[in-house]
Write a protein that binds this DNA or RNA. Sequence first.
DNA 1: AAATACTTTGCAGTGCCTGCAATGTTTGCG
DNA 2: CGCAAACATTGCAGGCACTGCAAAGTATTT
Lengths: 214, 214
Amino acid sequence: MVDGGGSGLRQRRKLQTKREIARAALDLVLARGLADVTVEDIAAAAGVSARTFFNYFTSKRSAVVPGPEPLSQDVIERFVADQETPVLDGLFGLIKSHLAEWPDVRQQMQCAHVLVTTYPELMSVLHERVAEFERVLVDAVARRLDAPEGDRRPRVAAALVGALVKASFMGRADEGDDPLDDLNACEAALRSLLIGSCSEGSPGHRPAQRKSPE
Amino acid sequence: MVDGGGSGLRQRRKLQTKREIARAALDLVLARGLADVTVEDIAAAAGVSARTFFNYFTSKRSAVVPGPEPLSQDVIERFVADQETPVLDGLFGLIKSHLAEWPDVRQQMQCAHVLVTTYPELMSVLHERVAEFERVLVDAVARRLDAPEGDRRPRVAAALVGALVKASFMGRADEGDDPLDDLNACEAALRSLLIGSCSEGSPGHRPAQRKSPE
DNA sequence: AAATACTTTGCAGTGCCTGCAATGTTTGCG
DNA sequence: CGCAAACATTGCAGGCACTGCAAAGTATTT
């Protein structure tokens, strides 16, 4: 309902109110605490009815945590087309491009971090968001690798990147830290961990397909 | 309330009823669907009051998805003590040991998979469970590496393993598949992805600590 | 201006989940 | 055993998230 199709003006108006609701939700929660803010409060602050709130957000929690900018098609296509750099490196680069493209994403991440550490219940929203993100990545990797149906690499690659993002998210120390620094630090940590367990396959090494219990 | 401290008999009795509630919840949901089962139904089927249900489970959803056996201290200590094999390999081995030790965990995973694919809302429970799991792993890795406070490797390593478990979980094709096979396939996929992006550090390579913006 | 599509809203209802206080049951101790 | 203290279960009352439905309002097309 909230997006897709429409006369463009209608469309913008809806995005506008969605932002207003989200902003109201965030402000109120930061001011009074998650438990002491009802959906009615948020709706009232945003100037809509409580019922309308649920036309825009599926839950109170999801309204509070800022939704991330979607990956731009441009960045994705560049990743898919680039057969040069290794897949994982390409994915990391993709994320960094994204952060570079929308600077306010970093602010949102810091905000989300505060929220999640204050109200652990919001973690589920974050997991969902990352999962959404990963779905896009799975698709991109599959296209880039021209992967067959059962190939697990897209999912694994996307999950790995998602895990790294979450780890960088959870592991931050100062609030002032730039998420990009965090991400780089985590990537470095990953690489240092990989040394030694890299090109020495323990079970098997076949790149694609599924199990082989024949 | 439900665990920790007690005369041992009380303790067992509580575990018993917890199992009964969980079983009732699972049975009912599989039979009638998640939305068509109320907490009262579950409580009644388990022979307790609805109020008691919430003494054992924090939510209806968390009662439905089977909770995993905790990692045995034994397996953990073995991992921590083994300075020989690389960390990540050790972690994979740890998981496999766990699966080998409790065969019914595999059954639970298959069950959870059915549930999650049928009712995506249950995904959050699964995320939570894996996160719990990861916390244990973070601790173990930190001890094994004797990692200082800000070291990101424990978190990254744990997140990576968690991601792999989730990927193997989500990527399964046939219901009949053995989760262990899935996990091995995912590990193979990971290794194949790492070829090429392994020992060629892109930004920096320092193993531990934090950023360095001085 | 009228018909049409879309959005907002009110209303009523279901059911999750919580705190509190009372009741029942185990356990430990004399 | 008998008593007291700890603990578990339960009922009750209530708040609030969330949903479906139908009416009312508002933009869009002809």
